[in-house]
Structures are given as structure tokens and as C-alpha cells.
């Protein structure tokens, strides 16, 4: 049994759809995350891919309890985080942090770098206020920023620099687990590489465990040990990096892979894309069967009638599909 840091069991996160002006009432649910189970092992990077709206970010935020899951368990070393409230929960936040997608809106514009990074230090009683400055400078150095910028405000930095401030902020409290929620999606490609390198080297140095969320398979492939592919709130395939890239089983995974450009002219010319007929058919009205069936290129009657469960096809490689 591999040493798992986080175990997720039957996680569900539904958002109510409310209608009515004077007397608001719930009319239905959006099933952003619908019955997902997996584990994240100490020291690994667990990649999560899927298109926009597939529920990747919701999974990340539910693990951190920034969304309180509708049902299911999130176990951090056996302790169920969903049951924690108030100060107990805030104490656990010291062990798990997040790097968010948008480096512009995720930093409070009225706080300077020192305030942003040092604020959680006091909350968690990590050190006395006299040591904050040294600690903040140390964190800035860790992410290759000039410690002299300590009293600047977020708007004075570039997107990549702001993302590094975000990383420094997340690391300041000394967490073990970090949810990287599309940390490079809003950055230029060359800046993306810098940030990925920083994340990579910090992981080894500080023995961190990552949940790495992205919609870019190339980025996820570069970072991850294991990868889960999400579609409309559910996992459709889960395997090691090599399994997903070399032997994809689910038609959706294959379609995603076919969309990755190959940096080689001959190979790129031969690349055949799987093109879907329509956009996502909607999380509000799922059919009885496989949620991917309406867009699937290999599906038949069976797929519309019953939901496929996740099944293990070989060691570490799971897939939810009738046809693979």
C-alpha cells in the first residue's frame, strides 16, 4: 500500500440552482463534482486535466475545504477534513495551501508583498513578529524574487512575478500539500516554464505533494507522476503519466491527446485530430448512460443505457468506459 497523504472518498460537490425573486428556492443542482474517489501519495504530483467546466478547480477547492463538499470524505492522514469546523479547520490550513490561477485578482491590491506573505505567519503562531521580515525575505529569495521589493504592491509586478509572490505566500507557513490550480494558464509560455521549474525544484527541496490542475495536457504531463482525466464532474481515466500518454484507454483521453501539437514537423503533419460534433451537452441534464456518450466517437446503445464504473485494467490504470 503506497503511503497516501490525502484520500478522497465518494466526493460530491453540488451547487444549487436557485430561482425566484422574492422567495428564492432551489430548483435543481449542478453536479460540479459527482462521486470521485482517489488518493494522493506523499511526495507525488497528482495531475488533473479536463476541459473548462469539468470540475477540476472544484475538486481542488473541495479538498482544501474552501468549498464545503456536499458529501463524501477528504482524509488528510486519516482525519476527515469535511467534519472540521472553525478553528480546527483553520489550523489544518497550515498543512495545505493553494496557488491560484489568476495572479491578478488573487492578491489583495491594498496589501504590499510583506503584508501578503507575513499575514498567515501570525495567524498560525509560527514565529514572533520580529522575525517576519527575515522570513518574508527568505521566501522571496526562494522563488527568485528580489527581497528588496518587499514593500511594493501587487500592481507593480508582472504576471509571472505575481504568481511567484503567490507561491511564496503559499509556502510561508510550511505546508506539505499544495493545490496548484492552473498556476500557469494565464501566463506567457516562457514565463510558464520558469514557474514550472520553480514548482519542480521546490517540490524536491521541501518534500511537497502537489495536486496539479491544468487544462493543458503537455503541462500536466511535464509535472505529474499520475494523471486523472475529468469529464463533467467525474473521472473517466486515471493512470500513471506513461499509461495516460502511451496507452490511453478512454476515447475522451485519446481526443485530448490528439489535440496536443507535436514539436516536430513530420510528426505534426501526420497528427490526426479527433473532432467532436458539439460542445459539452451540459452538466444540468445528464442522460441515463455515460456522460460522454453524446460526444463519443466509438459509443453505441449500451453507452446510453448504463453508466460505466471505474475499473482497473492493469496496475494503477483505471478507466470508466464500456468500449475500451
Amino acid at each position: 500500500m503506497p503511503n497516501s497523504l490525502i484520500e478522497v472518498k465518494n466526493l460530491k460537490m453540488y451547487f444549487p440552482v436557485v430561482s425566484g425573486i422574492l422567495v428564492p428556492r432551489k430548483v435543481s443542482d449542478i453536479k460540479a463534482v459527482d462521486d470521485i474517489s482517489f488518493d494522493i501519495r506523499r511526495g507525488e504530483t497528482f495531475g488533473l486535466v479536463g476541459e473548462s467546466g469539468s470540475g477540476k478547480t472544484t475538486v481542488g477547492l473541495s479538498l482544501l475545504q474552501l468549498y464545503r463538499p456536499t458529501s463524501g470524505q477528504v482524509l488528510l492522514e486519516g482525519k476527515d477534513l469535511c467534519k472540521l469546523r472553525g478553528s480546527e479547520l483553520r489550523q489544518v490550513r497550515r498543512r495545505m495551501q493553494a496557488i491560484f490561477q489568476d495572479p491578478y485578482s488573487s492578491l489583495n491590491p491594498r496589501m504590499n508583498v510583506f503584508d501578503i506573505i507575513s499575514e498567515p505567519l501570525g495567524i498560525h503562531h509560527i514565529m514572533s513578529p520580529r522575525e517576519y521580515r527575515r522570513k518574508v525575505e527568505e521566501m522571496l529569495t526562494l522563488v527568485d524574487l528580489d527581497p528588496g521589493m518587499i514593500s511594493r504592491y501587487p500592481h507593480e509586478f508582472s504576471a509571472g512575478e505575481r504568481q511567484r509572490i503567490g507561491i511564496a505566500r503559499a509556502l510561508a507557513v510550511g505546508p506539505e500539500f499544495i493545490v496548484c490550480d492552473e498556476p500557469v494558464s494565464s501566463l506567457d509560455v516562457c514565463v510558464q516554464a520558469q514557474i514550472l521549474d520553480i514548482l519542480d525544484s521546490l517540490q524536491t527541496r521541501l518534500n511537497l505533494t502537489y495536486l496539479f490542475i491544468a487544462h493543458d495536457l503537455a503541462v500536466v504531463g511535464y509535472m505529474s507522476n499520475r494523471i486523472a482525466v475529468m469529464y463533467l464532474g467525474q473521472f473517466v481515466e486515471l493512470g500513471t503519466r506513461d499509461q495516460i500518454f502511451e496507452k490511453p484507454l478512454h476515447p475522451y483521453t485519446r481526443a485530448l491527446l490528439s489535440a496536443v501539437p507535436i514539436p516536430d514537423r513530420a510528426a505534426e503533419k501526420k497528427r490526426q485530430r479527433v473532432v467532436f460534433a458539439d460542445e459539452t451537452s451540459g452538466a444540468l441534464t445528464p442522460s441515463n448512460g455515460c456522460s460522454f456518450a453524446p460526444r463519443c466517437t466509438v459509443g453505441d446503445e449500451q453507452c446510453h443505457e448504463a453508466v460505466p464504473e471505474m475499473e482497473m485494467r492493469e496496475a494503477e490504470h483505471w478507466v470508466a468506459c464500456w468500449k475500451s
Binding site: 477547492l61 482544501l64 474552501l66 490550513r93 490561477q101 488573487s106 492578491l107 505566500r169 507557513v173
Partner: peptide
């Protein structure tokens, strides 16, 4: 705004 979420994730009350 995202920075409110950031603040919560810091473990602030």
C-alpha cells in the same frame, strides 16, 4: 474577488 478566497486559504478567521 479571488483574493478573498486567498485570504480564507491562509487560514484567517
Amino acid at each position: 474577488q479571488d483574493y478573498v478566497r486567498t485570504a480564507r486559504s491562509k487560514g484567517l478567521s
